[in-house]
Amino acid sequence: MLNYKSSIIEDKKYSGLSIKEISPIMKLNLRGKSRDFLSTIGKNINMILPIEANTSSSSDKYTSMWLSPDEWMIISNNIIDKENNNYEIEELLFNKISKTNLGSVTDVSDQFVLINLEGESVFDILSSGCAFNFNEFMQKKGAVTQTLLAQVDIIIHHKEINNINLFVRRSFSEHLMSWINDAASRL
């Protein structure tokens, strides 16, 4: 039996900001272009993939984020089982999409670490290392963007006002967390 160990152990709290990793979360990367691809996904997960740039859509179980005109990431809204990494939804979509050549379905659950940042200082932290213009983004629940924070690629999902999910590639996550903590300690 293999034991599960996420990359970030410690939750942190600062005035106006709390930082924690949320794990395990299932994450799937979906790619495809055709109408069939979109409708098949829609039918099978009961959710329409967002086709408007920089947006997301959500159902009870999943949230899907626009990444590019032919690329999305679907994540589970809730924590999944640590003892098992066979995801029914992955298998279902892989069979309906990859095997029928409608597009691709790839498990990226551990490709990305999900860091949740919450509090009124969230966007102050981001603005100290990110050139993205958050003026509209911070007003818009469900907005998604891919950009660079402290020169590290990130995906940001605006979950609730002043509450964001930040996705970073696992190997960069310790560095980025350290950077965020350093920035937060100076708020």
Binding site: D70, T106, V108, R169
Partner: peptide, 12 residues
């Protein structure tokens, strides 16, 4: 070409 690429370097 009908090909899709996805990085999984960090996944494994």
């Amino acid at each position: 070409l009908d090909v899709y690429l996805t990085s999984v370097t960090d996944h494994f």
